[in-house]
Nucleic acid binder design. Sequence first.
DNA 1: GCCAACGTTGGC
DNA 2: GCCAACGTTGGC
Length: 158
Amino acid sequence: MRHWLMKSEPDEASIDHLAAAPGQCLPWTGVRNYQARNFMRDEMRVGDGVLFYHSSCPAPGIAGIAEVASTPYPDPTQFDPASPYHDPKSRREDPRWLLVDVRLVARTALLPLAAMREDPALADMATLRRGNRLSITPVTPGEWAHVLERLQVRWARA
DNA sequence: GCCAACGTTGGC
DNA sequence: GCCAACGTTGGC
């Protein structure tokens, strides 16, 4: 099993939205970056662990734990002209953008970005690297175990 | 609002 | 294929 950090703007999809969703599960819509898409399309498996990260907000940081809850499938928003994620160049016969569903495992206290940066155990985290803008990044087993420990989350699959 | 960093576009 | 221009991300 692999582990991931997935960024979401809480205005759009916060950990609270996830907790309130049917089955505490949401489709990860809106990814329009090929590298992030490829992680979902090629490397994620159902049951993979997810650090749910709040970005572009007053208090950025890890807000909870989630898991990958589906295999990849086409992001419906790419075909919706009314959606901000509409992609007129994507064809239904050959969808450009795929997504996975994500299910809540645990809401946690916020692990603020500043605290992540101060933590030597997280010094090499992909998402903390200079200039990184990827909304989905791999998390190593060590980083995953460390974050769950800090957040006091016990998870059978961890 | 600012700005660094990166990704994408499109002319050539 | 190159690369300048432009757009986006995301912290501050």
